[in-house]
Structures are given as C-alpha cells and as structure tokens.
Write a protein that binds this DNA or RNA. Sequence first.
RNA 1: GCUGAAGUGGUGGAAUUGGUAGACACGUUGGACUUAAAAUCCAAUGGAUAGUAAUAUCCGUGCGGGUUCAAGUCCCGCCUUCAGUACCA
Length: 900
Amino acid sequence: MVNINMMEYNFRSIEEKWQKYWREEKIYSASNTSNLPKYYVLDMFPYPSGSGLHVGHPLGYIASDIISRYKRNKGFNVLHPMGFDSFGLPAEQYAIKTGQHPKITTENNITRFKEQLDKLGLSYDWDREIKTSDSNYYKWTQWIFLKLYNSFFDVEKKKARCISELVIPDKLTNDEKVRFTDSKRLAYIDTIDVNWCEGLGTVLANEEVIGGLSERGGFPVIRKPMKQWVMRITDYADRLLEDLEDLDWPESIKLSQKNWIGKSSGAEISFYVDKENSIDVFTTRPDTIYGATYLVIAPEHPILDSIVTKDKKQLINDYRKVSSSKSDLERQENQKNKTGVFTGAYAVNPMTDKTIPIWISDYVLYGYGTGAIMAVPAHDERDYEFAKKFNLEIIKVIKSKDEFYSGAGEIINSGKYNGIESDEFKEIVSDFLEQTNKGKKTTNYKLRDWIFTRQRYWGEPIPILHSEEGTTGLEDHDLPLELPEVDSYLPTDDGLSPLARNIEWKSVTLKGKKYIRETNTMPQWAGSCWYYLRFLDPQNNLNFASEENINYWMPVDLYIGGAEHAVLHLLYSRFWHKVLYDLGYVNTKEPFKKLVNQGMILGNSAYIFRKTDQSGYVSSELKKQYDTQKILVDIKYVNERNELDIESLKKDNKQYNESTFEFAKSFIVEREVEKMSKSKYNVVNPDDICEKYGTDTLRMYEMFLGPLEQSKPWNTAGISGIHNFLKKFWKLYFDSNKLIVENSKPDDKSLKSLHRCIKKVSDDIESFSFNTAVSTLMITVNDLTAQRCRSREILEPLLIVLSPFAPHIAEEIWEKIGNNRSIVLSKYPKYNESYLLDSTKTYPVSINGKLRYKIELRTDLNKEEIEKEILSDKDFLKKLEGKTPKRIIIVPGKIINFVI
RNA sequence: GCUGAAGUGGUGGAAUUGGUAGACACGUUGGACUUAAAAUCCAAUGGAUAGUAAUAUCCGUGCGGGUUCAAGUCCCGCCUUCAGUACCA
C-alpha cells in the first residue's frame, strides 16, 4: 500500500469540510439587530445564463468576499447577500425555440450557478437569496411601479408627491381632469417614436441602442411611433447630476452619467416666419447670433406643412419619406456627407432683423432641444460642412485666424456689440431677447424619458387595467399580478406582447365594469432597480422592507460590479431610489455609497490556419508560406507551450479526421487575447481550477493577477506560484506527521515581518490593492520559513490576515492549533495596528561630538546606525568640509543624497 | 472627432509625499535529491562592456524637451494602445 501522508495540504477535504460547516451553522447570516457598526457589501447580482460561470465572473465576487471577511474581522456586522436577476431575454428566446417554460430554464440555470458559487467559498448570507422572477419579489416591483404611477413631480419643491395632492385646475371638465392627471404621472403613457427592433420583436430603451444596433444581438433598430409606458426620469435630471458629487465612485463612471444626462444651458430663440408662424431654436451660443445665416429644422418638425412653399412641397415630402425610413445607423453614415432641402421659406433673425432661409436636414434631431437650430457656419462644425456643401453664407462673428472656429473670443461683425468678449455677449443677447419676448434662457438635457414597456413574456406584468375612461392601477391587495400561462411565447401577429394571447386573463370585470389588462411587461432593469432593498428584509409580506431594517442597513457601503452598467442600471436605480426617498420609503438620497468596477478577465483564444485551397491546416509559424484563413480551435486542445494536441482534436471533431496538419517542430497555435466567451472556445471554467488546485488557490490567484479594476488576460500557467505558497504555508506548521506550533516568544525579526505584513495587507485591502496584499503575504511566509519561526504568537494573527484570501486553509489550521474564533476576534480587535518604526522621522544626530545635523530618515535605521553610516563614508565627510547640511538622505549602506 | 485610462524585463505586474527601478510571481538556465520521472529545495536571471573571479563602468520605465542635488513619478510637446461616446446645436 502507498503510505498516504495525512498531513499533506489536502485542499479538497479541507474545503469540503469548511464549506459544509459554514452552510450548516449559518456562520454568515447577518443579524438585523446588532450593536456593532454595520457594513453592507453588495455584488451586482448575475443574470443566470445557461453557460454557467467562467473564471472572469468570480473576480468581483472574490473581491467583495475579501472585504466582507476583512470587515467582519474588524468587528463590523456585515451584510453580504446574493440573488439572481432572473427575468431576461435568453430564457425567453430559448422558450420560443423549444417551448420549454422560461421558469424551468431559469430554475435549472440558478441551480447550476449556485453550485459554482458555493465552491468558491463565498461568505454569502443565502437566507436572503432573492430572484426577481419570484412572484413574492416582483409583487414589490409592481408595487413600486404603482407608486410611480400614483405620483407626480412637484416642480417647485423638486420632489415627487402623491398624485392625490396634485392641484387640478377647476375649470377643466371631468374628462380633461383625468387627462391632466395622467399627463403628470411619473409613469405615464405616451405615443412616441420608439426604438423598434424587428430582430428582437420589441421596443428598446435609448440606453439599449448602441450605434443604431441593439445592445443584445446587434440587430438593426428603427424609429417607429408607438404607445408606451414611460418613466419621467428627466424630471430628476438635475438631482441625478448634482448628487453624483458626493458619491465615492470612479470618476469615469460619474463622467459617463454626466455625459448621458448631458445638461447644457443656453437660450431658446424665436425666429418669425410670418405673422402666425415662428420657429423656436435652441442654442448654447446665443453670442453667435449675428452669424446665424440660415435655419435648419428636423424633417419631423410639425411646422413644416404650414411654411413650405408650394414649389418645394414635393421635394420636401420626398426628403421626409427617405429620412423617416432610415434607421439610426443609416442616418449616422451621413455624418460626413450631409443632406438637406431648402423649404422656400424665410425667417427673421430677431437680433439683426435680417431675413434668412429655412432648410430641413436630418442632421438636426427632432428629439433634442426644439428640433430646430439657427445655423452659424463660421462657428459650428456641422453647420460649416452644411453651408460649404450647399453654398450658404458664412459670416464670422468671433475673431479668429481660421474660417471656422468653435471657441470663445472677441465679438466682431455684430453691429454695436463689436469688441465685447463672447461670454459677456451671451448674457447680453439672452437678456435682450427675454426683454423683447423673442426668447428665453433655457437648459436642455440629452437624457430622454425612460421607455418602460417591452413586448415580451418573461418579465414583470404591468399592474394596470385599461377601460374607456382611461387607466387604473391595481390595488395593493391584488398584487402580485402573476404572469399568466400562454400557448406561445411569440408576440401576437398584430405586434402585441405574448401576454395578449391569454384572452381569459386579459379581460377582467371589476364591480360590473369591464377592463382590459395591460399586456406589455417591464424591462429587465425593473427588478434590478431596487433589489438591494429587498435583501434587507426578503421575507417581509407587509412591506418591501421594514423601516427599521432600511434605517439600519442603508446605504450600500460598497457596491462591486462591471463597468458595463455605468449608465443603464446605475442611473435607473438611482432614479427609483430618489422617488422612494421623496415618498418617504427610504432614508438616503443615494443607494450606493462606494462603487468599484472590477475589470474583465479576458480569454486567450487559439487559432490555427486553414489553407484556402482546403488541403489542410498549418501551424502559426508556417502561415506565411500559404494563403490561409484563421480558424478558432478550442483551447482545451492547446497546452501551455501553445502546442496543439492534434490527436485529441481529431478524436473529438470528425471534420479534422481526413485533414493534414503541417508544422515545424510541433504544431504551434496563434494566441489572441479576446473577451472570454463560449463562441470563442476560450472559456476557462473555475470548477476545473478548483478541482486541480483548490478554491483558496483560485481566489488568491485571481486577486494576484493584477489590479482589480484593470482588464487582464487569464493565464493558467502562473497559478502554480500561488499553489506553492499555500503548500509552503502549510508545510511551515506541519511536519511529516505532526503539527508544530511553538509557544515560545518570537524573535524581533519575525515580529517585524508579521507587523509589516499586518500593516501592508490592511492598507492594501482598504485601497483595493489585492494583488500587492497577496505578494506581501508571500514575502512574509518566505521570511518566516527562512527564520523557521513557528511561534503561536506569530501564527494566530497571521491566520487572520490570511483568512480573507484563503479562508479554508486559515480555518483548518486555526482549528488544529486549538483555538476558537470568538477568542481571536476579541484578542486582536485592532490587528491592523502595527508597531513598526515610523520611517520618516527627523532625528538630531551628532558626529564626532561636534556637528549636529537634522537627518530625515528614509529607513528604519536607528540613531546609532545612522551615525555609523555617516562616519564610514569618508567621501561624504570630505565634501562636507565643516558645512552643515540641511538634509541628508540615507538608505542602508549608502548616503544617497544631501543638500548643503 | 471628442472624453477617459494606460504605455516599466521573455510574461503578469511592484515602486508611500519625486529618493537604491524591476518587489512578488510565472518562465528560463544551472545545481541538489532520485535508478528515473514527478514533487520539493537551493542559486542565477533588464541590457551592454571589461575581468578567471569577487566586481566595476555605462545604458535603461513609449518618443523629444524641461524643472530638480535627484524624475517611472512633476511640467511642455508628440506617438501608440485600450475603453466609452458619437451629427445633442
């Protein structure tokens, strides 16, 4: 029999043992009532996709877990929950294909996700798990929707109030009163041009459209007028902008949100066409008004019909037809080659009283500002291009060398105002126009109201009933409004949501009155807008969370997630939170105090080269000899030296069976760093890494790879360094068959190593420098191994420092040396306090009993050592020649520099 | 185009307020142990030149300048890469 050494570092049994213990004893369940200070650490919860986790996903989870464990060790009551954003498109698309209910797909995926997460030894409080597709969760999503429906924005007080407090003008008829009320609601119905995505069969929010294509799937998006539920997020634009200031968020995210809100102040100016018609334009540069040589209005602008001259009607209508059929993507292609048509009409510049032509062009967007602009070709790049192309007049009104200039400066060609600075002139023009009723100062936002409906099945039903008199919200006691069963998950033939297929469900009779249910569902963002609140009190049936729990836990102290949610999720949840705040349901203005974005872990795809004549494959170094195409191969057939295992490849993939493989010494593939994804065959599964090296190794290695915020490629080869470290650590305290921990006093050297480690690791954790923290732990263990230090007095605090990174091995040793958790926590409450020498003190030092210098220390040398250092450097003493230096910089063994 | 972040060995990456550049790890090379391999341990490892050697000298943080006793770090001007954004008046 093989003699199994029982004291080897057996990570499998250790990890199994402790994960079971944590689960069964509910070690990480957080108490809602505690005298300890609270700390709420939240991960952006995942959508449970079918492909499971790859090594990139856990990065943020491990980081938040390290913080959670660290804060617990420091005496905080930590809330660290996890859940699933389980409504979403992939499950629905799978359902359309297979007929399987999305609920089943989703449940299966969640089970898989939880298994994988569990293996990572994350300290979640699973008692608080939530799923957005559970009816006892979306009951409250619907409840919040109704709060928005039943509220309006008080412009005076700049906050949301209950709709019953809305002042309705008395003179209105009953019908008009209803319409007036509806028009003020925070959730309202509007017919607007929406982003219609034929490929997905649904409407998308502006935020979900990137460059004219859908964010998911990359299908083309066109504009189409439709009736939609819309959220009045624009009312909150100012507050969403202002409150960014106080948040401890990455500057880049704050900036994206600022840009998205896109606040710009300027003036709205009226240009009269004739007695009845005037065109309002928005401009941020009223100071250039003397240079406005024409107007441009958007093709959709309603005033067009009443101003176009007869002879131009046909041309204009043709242009409108073409531009309305264009997708956003096609419109953008015109950026370099602008199109437009003259309307035949003229308007009067209110400052100069000059008559200028009116054009239409799709470079002016109907959705922004007033849908019309005054064109100042000399000082606006787009107007300049347009004027050049159509040969329109260009007048310079700000002094500059170039024909085109967009900056500020001295005003010219502006009548009696010449010589004034443009900033000052801006005010003068605005004031003049305001006084003469020809314009006013205004502010414009890029932010649009949030289109909230989706023509889909797998989402929260909107709790609204329609009747001839208008809309009615469901009562609280009718919630949740459960998703009905349908016979097909496709939209109906007439473009309605799949819910409309269930005719029985759709029609309701209440108190003898007939209603039709709203059949659209909410977008995926709805559930994630407020989930951080439900974690505080997930079982509560009376409220979305109790007031006490909200007051105790909010705000989220640390929120970790990917930067891809910079605008979408983070802006929407801030908006909902502010509404809840206004209505008195939450106690903080902002939900997330500190935000950290983890970087992406990239994959290392492998490519081989197929000869274009289909005669076989060649390796990377031979590709230049032939005409070839790049072909992806699964990285599981490639080893660390980039060699392809042709045998296995052929065995698993029949299409290669007959092919020839040409190579020099061995078949080398070409590597490329890309996003990790199934379709690139470059996915590394964390389960495999855990199986081979253990979870503690995976956790430490992911942190060791580089700075948390940075994107970096995964490289399995480097993992042995971390694994060796853990083995070394284990071996330091376990001889071949017994534990060796000494009770003797540690020597100074070991103490110094320990305390340097404590200080550095704590500082690193606080500043999210997990990679250097891991390095420090390695250095410390190397030191202790060299010093053969096995003192209990060193080991105990060291285990606490290690435990956030490698919790399993720390617990195991902890248990073996016979101590218990509660004693440790009280014994070392301030374990980050170090008694290392302060390294930058100023010491007076005398040399030869005569000179007295003030020495700035760069090291932890003591006074005697410094004097010795100076006296041994004869060159230095010679240079001094009796002068007194102001400053001397010394490092061990050398005087680096001095200032006399 | 605009905005933001970043360019350091063969690789991932360290470097407090400007103060011994390359910590820590991977890889590579050599050695020990072993019949052998694996595992483990030890040593060397930015480049160049000189020397048997210890060692010495010079050059080195994308490029070109500048400030300073001292610059990866600060200032000016470029180049490159990545990310976000895109006719927002």
